[in-house]
Nucleic acid binder design. Sequence first.
DNA 1: CTGAAAGCGCTTACAG
DNA 2: CTGAAAGCGCTTACAG
Lengths: 353, 353
Amino acid sequence: MTKDRRPTLETVAAAAGVSLATVSKVLNDRADVSAATRARVQRLLVQHKYVPPGRPMVGRFAGGRRLIDLVFTALDSPYSVEILRGVTSGPMDVVVSSMSDRSGSRPWSSGLASAGRSGAIIVASELTPLDQRLLDHAHIPYVLIDPAAKLPEPDVATVGATNWAGGLSAARHLLGLGHRRIAVIGGPVAMLCSRARIDGYRAALESAGVKVDPALIATGNFHHIGGYQAARGLFELPDPPTAIFAGSDEQAFGVAEAARVTGRRIPEDLSVVGFDDLPISRWVSPPLTTVRQPLAEMGRTAAEMLLTMIDGREPHGRQVELATELIVRSSTAPPPLPAMESPGHATLARGLH
Amino acid sequence: MTKDRRPTLETVAAAAGVSLATVSKVLNDRADVSAATRARVQRLLVQHKYVPPGRPMVGRFAGGRRLIDLVFTALDSPYSVEILRGVTSGPMDVVVSSMSDRSGSRPWSSGLASAGRSGAIIVASELTPLDQRLLDHAHIPYVLIDPAAKLPEPDVATVGATNWAGGLSAARHLLGLGHRRIAVIGGPVAMLCSRARIDGYRAALESAGVKVDPALIATGNFHHIGGYQAARGLFELPDPPTAIFAGSDEQAFGVAEAARVTGRRIPEDLSVVGFDDLPISRWVSPPLTTVRQPLAEMGRTAAEMLLTMIDGREPHGRQVELATELIVRSSTAPPPLPAMESPGHATLARGLH
DNA sequence: CTGAAAGCGCTTACAG
DNA sequence: CTGAAAGCGCTTACAG
């Protein structure tokens, strides 16, 4: 009967061919260990899944559930509740925080291990190299939801949505309705998901033979104000759009407000498509046509991947994209007739009739 | 130089006049200790604030922050993010959960102590007597935000808003605009905050000499659908309202949707007032007149009270109500003229002209 | 039911 | 930079 006990320092010391004392020093980050020895011991500690006593299971308390961190860039949108709902539906206890709350003193990720965290989920942001190093060093696995700016390395676990396909379906829907002057409002320029949505929009127009007018590609911040300001700008154009793909639901609400303020009716004068499908979007007037992004499902998936990684198993895929889906409601309609004769497309329009 | 070290089993053993081994047994819940000895040792352990090694401070981890629980009835509204933002702005780590996620196996509050929690904040709900007993027994302090149904005993810490005054100001605003047929839509009937809002509404009408018509007092669930359904019902009345105080912002959106579907314009045909002032309410079309409830501030206040209690000090007051404030935007206007001649008030209207 | 004693897993001052 | 050895805080099998 093999009684496989929790590994002790002795186990690891034997494996590394050093004394028990040396292993202890590595564990306690003492200076008096050579880099080579430190590295070797560290590797062996991981290999043997060494965990200090007193916290029997990794980051799990007596009879309790595992603790993980869920870190938002900011807690400033209903978007957050949706993700949160997905993450908390799992069997782990979730410590929620916002990067914007953290005082600048210590890096966010330091102290997670000593605080008993088993893992972390980071939303709409990404890790600084320092954070990454600290987490790796503490053997705390992590998953990024909608990583912000740079493409994560293939070994980093991420969960996103099919932003490109979503942008494509939004623009196709508007094209199908007869729109030709279709604007798009992105989020922060650096954000990957925003760029993918715009590229999908572009692909739809191009494959429909509609030239992409750079004047119709605006930039926002994914929030109401971004949509409002961008829309005000688009309305000033000599040949304004008849439809706007707003890039996010909140931006769509900003667009709607800009339309109201300038006396445009939705959808009669202007069609608007959002992105996200927040619960509120069914309930604004008129209900918003939007690209549904399964936010709660993304949260749930991230939590499952993380749990797999915490248990030392390999998730099925490290880079997951969940499907988006166009939800047609009442904020989109065929363009008003005069728009078909807009200067920019007069030739085309005439050619077709 | 007094070097006051963390108490060890030895400290407690000496104090209790037993051997170190016996203390250890008590700590590990072994059976072979007499009830009397067990009780005495247990008391001394608490008195000396003994904490097992590996988890240095009570409910606070090495260099880390205190852990508290934030429990929502459900995670189903932007309301939650606002509270959450307030609570997480403090110096504690916040474990967020939803009662609806909990499997029914163990009561919510069991195991909080062994999970290292220092306190709990419960939102829009209340504690079962069992929960209360478990928390008290584990010496875990707690604060209720917007306690749901029953008036909490005076020693229970609560944070709310001036719901009555809010209801009053909403109704006064509509009265001032000239409305006389003013409906109100409450939340779940049992909820204290909902009743206070309705009572405020009632007080405003009565003090303005407007008779309260029971047909104009409807019930919802604080969510979109509740507002939508209640409004559809109100529209069917022989003498329908010209204004609706929707009881919550989400219900106001439901009312707006019901108005749109039935061809009523806001505010020309129908005035609508919400309650909450969710961030989105500035951005719906038209922007919503509402009673602002300082949700984030309520979260922050609850966190501060809890911290005070965790530190063993007495909060300034155990029952706090933060002020509400009427925010006038574009969803309210004077009633349409025919309404002044509505059958119910024909006499009054004639008398005035 | 209690405690002396052996033992475990870890840390650290110190010798080399 | 490394490890033998002393020591710390705790647990537990066992004798009484």
